[in-house]
Nucleic acid binder design. Sequence first.
DNA 1: TTGTACGCGTTATCAA
DNA 2: TTGATAACGCGTACAA
Lengths: 343, 343
Amino acid sequence: MGRDSRDVTIKDVAKRAGVAISTVSRVLNGLDKVSEKTERRVKAAVEELGYVKNTLAVSMVTGQTKTVMMVVPDFTNDFNGAVIQGAEAYLKQQGYTMLVFSTKDFREEESGQLFRRFSKLADGMLVVPSNPDNIEYEKWEKPLVLIDCYRPKQDYCAIEVDNMGGAALLTEEMIRNGHRRIGFVGGIPGDSHGGRRMDGFRRTMAAHGIPVDERLVIEGVHFEHTGYAGIRKLLALPEEIRPTGVIAVNNLTCIGCIKALSELGLVIGEDISLAGFDDHLLARYSRPGITVIDRPTIEMGEKGAELLTRLLGKETEVPVQTVMEVRLRRRQSVKNLREADTE
Amino acid sequence: MGRDSRDVTIKDVAKRAGVAISTVSRVLNGLDKVSEKTERRVKAAVEELGYVKNTLAVSMVTGQTKTVMMVVPDFTNDFNGAVIQGAEAYLKQQGYTMLVFSTKDFREEESGQLFRRFSKLADGMLVVPSNPDNIEYEKWEKPLVLIDCYRPKQDYCAIEVDNMGGAALLTEEMIRNGHRRIGFVGGIPGDSHGGRRMDGFRRTMAAHGIPVDERLVIEGVHFEHTGYAGIRKLLALPEEIRPTGVIAVNNLTCIGCIKALSELGLVIGEDISLAGFDDHLLARYSRPGITVIDRPTIEMGEKGAELLTRLLGKETEVPVQTVMEVRLRRRQSVKNLREADTE
DNA sequence: TTGTACGCGTTATCAA
DNA sequence: TTGATAACGCGTACAA
């Protein structure tokens, strides 16, 4: 029960070194003054016995764990993977251990329960909320930073991405290349990400005086199927209505579009133009490359980790809202219709 | 220090309910017999105060955590992501919490230190070793299951994949389609995965009486660059030597090959044939689709989790070695040269 | 400079 | 059926 015979405790070290446990503790934590002689003796004993601090016991008395919990909605998404990587690198450098947990298929109550459990296991938390959000981070009463999230309440520290601006860049790119009948696949009005991207699209169209044909806007969840079915629906429209270019609301819907076009034997950037969000494998390496909005994934993780460590360091001047800029990766999936006209 | 004023302990509950803490503990754990009356009183107090068990303290005395630690080399790899997902689903169902940790850029000593730290935080461990391996799981003295790993020592429980068989399937596929000058890109002889895949390739060639031209075997680490540079090297060979088909040792090298071919304007499955390992996004959705060996990722995670829980349940009859079969996903990246001949 | 003793929140043992 | 109390391993105020 509890104690394994192999486990070496501070007591064993003390006995071996012939000192009191408090002395061992002092040496281990580098506090107070300890004579060099005893310090050597203690260190030797630690080495010989292979002593390792019991983190549990330390946290028990100090209330600190030097551990950060990161919560993501899903591990099979390279966006999350990159954010995790960025956060981990930063935290490791700051002496923290980062543990990752996924809330895939979680019910809200479960997450609340879990967060209260975790509150003893970690000093702070980094959360990439799912969409729609199924986790109750209000149950967490320690420092918390939300990543890729619009600040839900005044007192939460959140890092967001300029989704509206990204959609605007994509729409501009289409318009600049002569497109006017532009489709938009995926997204739910009012939704934090998809909704804002839709808004960016609509506003940019309006700014250029181009009316949005509602038949070309296919709402839906951010999954592959939405893109797959959506673009097929658009292609089935009469030619004079059919869009010349389509914007996919996120990586999965974009992949769905590519899949559908591939099956139909249509050439992207030729028969139809396509643009989307997130610089995934297919966007980068399929032919033609897909013009996309690239979010600064690694940097978002790093930034979140930085803000969290500042919070953990009891810093007060931490920005509650941080907006990260996106970048347009221009490739060959958007055909230049102006050139084509002059041919 | 340590205690947060908001934290409610078992003592507070006991006081509120007017009973001893041992009684509260009994109610909470459903042990021994407790009168219904006191049980109600205790439960009411728990509810009113919003009491939550301190996991740390429990682990402190029981030595159990009901938590499993999973260690992966990298979060930005969909293979790992899928394995994690499989393991997590299984463990969650079994009442365990799974926390994931990555050893990216770790030095061996660091990992040893960390594992000893973790030994107090988790009951068991699931490890997907990196390649080459930079972690010292020998420092872990509790139940451990290795995933996608050839059993390093007799007493480790390991789940492996039939890499040699996979390479054989790919080679057969090439030969069946009339290829004889087949290139192999990536892999280091003797390496656990790449080495075995190379072996599978060589043996299959031998079994068909086709000599392997060593100029067509490009050794190298399992990264994108190896594939990129490797296939360019092969294409630079005189036409009579140049391979008609190439097998890439893993997903990254395959992606490197695709990138290089794309840049050179060569059409896969037409100008040159390509096949690889792992059913990634590009293999599935680029045109043409790439013929690959698909490893049962989710199932590997589940199987690993299953074995671990059996180990944790003190079961003795747990298979130390489990081989999972792979599957050939036949697509259009391997050209049929026989048909071409008759044209 | 070093040692003693208490407390962190819980479980488990024993006595009542 | 319940209560008191000794662990679990460590940090730290206080005494020596």
